Simulated assay, not measured.
Amino acid sequence: MLASFLTRPDLSVEQAHRGIGIALDRLDTETPAKNRSMLSALRHTALDEGRRARAVDCALRWLEANGTLPKARLVIEDLLTLPALPPGEGRLAIRWAEDWLALHGNEPFAHHLRAALGRGRMESLR
Results as ranks from 00 to 15, higher is better:
Arg36Ser: 10
Asp99Glu: 13
Leu60Ala: 06
Leu85Gln: 09
Arg61Tyr: 00
Ala59Leu: 01
Val75Ile: 14
His112Cys: 05
Arg61Asp: 09
Thr81Cys: 09
Trp100Asp: 02
Glu98Met: 02
Thr45Ala: 14
Arg73Ser: 08
Arg91Trp: 05
Glu98Trp: 04
Trp100Ile: 00
Ala55Gln: 04
Arg51His: 12
Gly67Glu: 02
Ala84Gly: 10
Ala41Phe: 02
Asp57Cys: 04
Asn35Ile: 04
Ala65Tyr: 07
Arg36Gln: 15
Ala97Lys: 01
Thr31Pro: 04
Glu98Phe: 01
Ser40Gly: 13
Thr81Glu: 14
His111Tyr: 14
Leu101Phe: 05
Pro32Tyr: 09
Leu42Met: 09
Lys71Tyr: 07
Thr45His: 13
Leu82Ala: 07
Leu42Ser: 03
Asp57Tyr: 01
Thr31Tyr: 06
Pro83Gln: 13
Thr31Trp: 06
Leu101Asp: 05
Ala46Asn: 08
Trp100Gln: 03
Gly105Phe: 10
Asn66Arg: 11
Leu103Arg: 15
Asp78His: 10
Met38Asn: 10
Leu82Thr: 07
Ala65Gln: 12
Ile94Leu: 11
Gly88Ile: 09
Ser40Ile: 12
Glu98Gly: 00
Ala53Asn: 12
His104Gln: 11
Asp48Met: 08
Asp78Cys: 02
Phe109Lys: 14
Asp99Pro: 00
Pro108His: 10
Thr68Gln: 15
Arg91Thr: 09
Gly50Ile: 12
Met38Phe: 05
Thr68Cys: 04
Ile94His: 04
Leu60Arg: 07
Pro70Asn: 07
Lys34Ala: 12
Ala41Leu: 07
Ala46Ser: 15
Glu77Ala: 08
His104Arg: 11
Arg54Gln: 15
Gly105Thr: 11
Asp48Ala: 13
Leu42Tyr: 01
Arg73Tyr: 04
Ala102Ile: 04
Gly90Leu: 10
Pro108Phe: 11
Arg43Thr: 14
Leu92Ile: 07
Asp78Leu: 03
Ile94Lys: 04
His111Ile: 11
Ile94Glu: 10
Gly67Ile: 00
Cys58Leu: 02
Leu82Gly: 02
Ser40Asp: 08
Leu101Asn: 02
Ile94Val: 15
Lys34Asn: 10
Met38Glu: 11
Arg95Glu: 14
Ser37Leu: 08
Ala97Glu: 03
Arg36Cys: 03
Asn106Trp: 03
Phe109Gly: 01
Leu69Cys: 04
Ala72Trp: 02
Leu103Ile: 09
Glu89Met: 09
Arg61Pro: 00
Pro32Lys: 12
Ser40Ala: 14
Glu49Cys: 06
Glu64Thr: 13
Leu101Lys: 03
Arg91Pro: 00
Phe109His: 14
Ala84Met: 12
Arg52Thr: 09
Glu98Val: 08
Leu63Tyr: 01
Leu101Trp: 03
Leu74Asp: 02
His104Cys: 06
Trp62Cys: 04
His44Asp: 13
Leu101Ala: 06
Pro70Asp: 07
Ser40Leu: 13
Cys58Ile: 00
Pro108Lys: 12
Ala33Glu: 15
Phe109Ile: 06
Thr31Ala: 14
Asp57Gly: 03
Met38Ala: 09
Arg91Ile: 06
Pro70Phe: 08
Asn66Ser: 11
Thr68Pro: 01
Gly50Lys: 13
Arg36Phe: 06
Gly90Lys: 08
Ala97Pro: 06
Trp62His: 06
Leu39Pro: 00
